[in-house]
């Protein structure tokens, strides 16, 4: 089912997207628009293709051997899967935060933050300092690490590591930030901090967040997409999409209602 009508000026527009792992079809014919400077949450039972879907948005899907894709993903009107589009450029514009924190263990906190921008043009030291401070602030981590920027990224707690990964992604200044269950491996306090950080991000970024946690989706997001599989082994589908408030208060489809009210999942 396609939900293309609700958003007038999308940053990302997905059209008829099918995704495969080898012969297995993981996602069937998804259409979706993602609103600029808004937070879009993707919810649904495990294995329904939410993570696969967001990996399709920045072409991380194709790093898995045997993975392939059909359909279009338009970023500012341009198909990221068009011929002669370099996936490296797509990923500069569409950043990603993963489920488990994955800072680079051999780098300091400071170097972790600038790992991405060091790939691009050269920056002055003062510029880098400024970027590190700003992005760590945006990720709500600056206060905790400003006195130990030279320490290893591994010296931080799990929640701090994840916020470091968010800062690292912000430093590249992508248009869209994809988050794949960024708080699922963390304790409630860390989760709270990350949710706060995400709320602030939408001033300058477009955020897509996959979550298992319905409260989280309803708390932080403006739009919600519900993914669903009809039976085991079938491909995932975008079952319902709309403004978060509407999805949670007045879902149109029965399965959505069952899921958001916690009757299964």
């Amino acid at each position: 089912m396609s939900y293309l009508h609700e958003i007038s000026e999308p940053v990302v527009e997905v059209q008829d997207l099918n995704m495969y792992y080898g012969a297995f079809k993981a996602l069937d014919s998804v259409g979706m628009k993602i609103a600029k400077n808004r937070i879009t949450a993707l919810i649904g039972p495990s294995g329904c293709g939410k993570s696969t879907f967001i990996r399709g948005l920045n072409r991380m899907h194709e790093t898995v051997p045997g993975a392939r894709i059909e359909g279009k993903v338009l970023l500012d009107g341009e198909d990221v899967y068009a011929e002669n589009v370099d996936p490296v450029r797509v990923r500069r514009k569409v950043g990603m935060v993963f489920q488990k924190p994955n800072p680079f263990p051999t780098m300091s906190i400071y170097d972790n933050v600038i790992a991405g921008i060091k790939l691009g043009r050269r920056h002055k030291k003062s510029e880098l300092d400024e970027i590190v401070e700003r992005t760590l602030n945006q990720a709500a981590l600056w206060g905790e690490v400003k006195n130990k920027l030279k320490d290893s990224g591994m010296s931080l707690s799990g929640g701090q590591q994840q916020r470091l990964c968010i800062a690292r992604t912000l430093a590249v200044e992508p248009e869209v930030i994809l988050m794949d269950e960024p708080a699922s491996a963390l304790d409630p306090i860390s989760t709270q901090k990350i949710e706060d950080a995400i709320q602030d991000l939408k001033k300058s970024y477009t955020v897509v967040i996959v979550t298992h946690n319905m409260q989280q989706a309803s708390r932080v997001s403006d739009y919600t997409g519900f993914f669903f599989i009809e039976e085991m082994g079938a491909p995932g589908q975008l079952w319902e999409f709309g403004e978060t408030e509407r999805i949670f208060s007045n879902p149109k489809r029965k399965e959505t209602e069952d899921y958001v009210t916690g009757r299964f999942g």
Binding site: F98, C165, T169, V172
Partner: peptide
């Protein structure tokens, strides 16, 4: 080397 390390770098726009 965990794949998470590779993905982290690729997602930052690395070749």
């Amino acid at each position: 080397v965990p794949d998470a390390q590779r993905e982290a770098m690729l997602a930052l726009g690395a070749t």
